[in-house]
Amino acid sequence: MTYVRDDESSGERLDRHWNELLQELRLAQTGTQILFAFLLGIAFQNQFHSADAFTHAVYAGTLVACALAAAFFLAPVALHRVLYGRGLRDRLVTVTDRLARGGMTLLLASMSGGVLIALDVVLPRPAAGAMVGGVLIVFLALWLALPAYVRHKGPEKPN
């Protein structure tokens, strides 16, 4: 349930939500772009060419997921440019929230794939897969379970 602060108009609330989303996206965009640059460089390493089909498939999926995550995180910029001054801030905030959630999902896939590629070099494949499973559990615990717990335990306050 969404609440409105007594001292805040609907427009001020939308502006505040928009600014909060932008701050979150700045962090996610930077990390995603660094990961993407790192992933692009892997394909040009001599050792990568001798990797097996599994590694190449994980790499391809990871690279595409990371590129899509960047697209999701950058889409609000283009959206804002097109919609600026049209009085559609409410839609912009809603769509940007959904884009950020989609980007986070793709970033999770990218991070997991990147960890798998790296661990597959230094560990036996089953151990690497198990460790990536552990990493996924930590991400899900921090990104989904912890916020759900805090939301459940804490008093509801206005957004």
Rank of each mutant, 00 (worst) to 15 (best):
A69L: 02
A51P: 00
L79R: 11
T96D: 01
R89N: 07
A69C: 07
L88W: 10
A75W: 05
V58W: 08
Q47P: 01
A60V: 14
A78E: 03
L63V: 07
A69W: 03
L40A: 07
A78T: 14
V95D: 05
R98Y: 12
I34K: 05
F48M: 02
F72A: 13
D97N: 15
L79G: 08
A71T: 04
F44Q: 08
R98V: 08
F72R: 10
A70Q: 02
L74K: 07
A70G: 04
N46P: 12
Q47W: 13
L68I: 07
V58A: 11
L63E: 02
T94I: 04
Q45S: 14
A69F: 07
V77E: 09
V82G: 04
F48N: 03
A57Y: 11
F44S: 09
A75G: 04
H80V: 04
G61H: 08
V93P: 00
C66P: 00
A75K: 02
A69D: 00
S50E: 13
A71I: 11
L63T: 11
G41E: 06
P76R: 01
L35Q: 06
A53K: 14
L74I: 12
A60F: 15
D97V: 09
A51R: 15
A43R: 08
F72W: 10
G41V: 00
G31S: 09
H56V: 05
L74S: 08
G41H: 06
T96Y: 06
F48P: 02
G41C: 04
V77M: 15
Q47R: 15
T32P: 01
D90K: 14
H80S: 09
C66N: 11
R89H: 13
I34Y: 03
A71K: 00
G61R: 08
V95S: 03
L92A: 02
F54I: 10
T96G: 12
Y84V: 08
G31I: 08
D90Q: 15
T32G: 10
H49N: 13
H56S: 07
V93W: 00
I34F: 10
L99Y: 03
Y84M: 03
G85H: 02
A75T: 05
D90H: 11
A78C: 10
A60H: 14
G31E: 07
V82A: 14
F48K: 04
V77A: 14
I42T: 12
Y59R: 03
A57V: 11
F54D: 12
Q33G: 08
G31C: 09
R91F: 12
V64C: 04
C66F: 10
A53W: 15
F54M: 13
T32Y: 02
V64S: 05
R81I: 08
V82P: 07
D97P: 04
T32S: 12
T30N: 10
R86N: 13
Q47K: 11
A78V: 09
N46R: 15
Q33M: 13
S50I: 14
V77G: 03
V64K: 00
V77D: 11
R91P: 05
F38A: 15
F44H: 03
D52A: 10
L40H: 06
A70W: 07
A78Y: 10
